[in-house]
Write a protein that binds this DNA or RNA. Sequence first.
DNA 1: TTGCGTGCAAAACATTTGCAACTAT
DNA 2: ATAGTTGCAAATGTTTTGCACGCAA
Lengths: 148, 148
Amino acid sequence: MNYDFSDYQKRLKNIVKSKGLKYSSQREDILKALYNSEEHLTPEEIYSKAKIYNKNIGLATVYRALSFLESEGLVNSISFGTDAKKYELNRGHHHDHMICLGCGKIIEFYEEELEKLQENIAKKQGFKLITHEMNLYGLCADCEKSED
Amino acid sequence: MNYDFSDYQKRLKNIVKSKGLKYSSQREDILKALYNSEEHLTPEEIYSKAKIYNKNIGLATVYRALSFLESEGLVNSISFGTDAKKYELNRGHHHDHMICLGCGKIIEFYEEELEKLQENIAKKQGFKLITHEMNLYGLCADCEKSED
DNA sequence: TTGCGTGCAAAACATTTGCAACTAT
DNA sequence: ATAGTTGCAAATGTTTTGCACGCAA
């Protein structure tokens, strides 16, 4: 099932209220930028997109909002190598990533079996699992084809 | 089975020779710093340790060497969050990581089943797998105990 | 009114690069 | 002699912070 933007708006409002914080249009605009994108975005990219809704937003605000939103579970991040971290809206469907080293494309996947396996591995070590990331690096079909 | 430092030295010499490059004590000292550490080290930490063997080594050299050594498969890196990348010597036993969000401790683990599963996932998408990383984030037994 | 949130600019970091000097081959 | 390698310092790119002002509650 998919969510409307208003669902995210509500979640943000609830979080903010329950913590005694204040609602701001900037955080909403950043969420909207993520909602309207299919891709994983860098803070810089999110900044550009959020500017469409709000001319006066600052890059620092984007960083501050992203780390807030991530800590509240509304967005997820993925970082690889030395490049800038990338963010995506948490749409409620957990998944992992395959990253093409040729073109940088990110492919999402979900494997039930993998999820279960991790639980077991963590349990075995007495580790309390909070989250995880599994990144497969390689070449996507297109890039492999065009390899010499 | 475990390797002596001289084994790594030899591998480095072979790689360098086969590529028509030159052998340098700096790269060896960086390898030695990693060999003598049980932990995952940042470039800065490797720099400090390598300085013990070679007073005049530069940080830029450490960065250059690490990226060379990683591309040759002699070292592996792990990066999470915004912090500096961490490196470890590739001791020939592939493994993944569990990272404690409480104390930052990194626990290594290896699961045959997990390795196989990844191969299958990649194959299913027509993706040519080169490498992967699987990071489990949570609380280690000690940190969970001391939680309030 | 209170204090959280923001924009801006400066600061802080991590990493990379240009360059002249050094050194293995 | 040649060309890879280095140290240093400067440049880059990303993320964080200090501060005065604005705004939601």
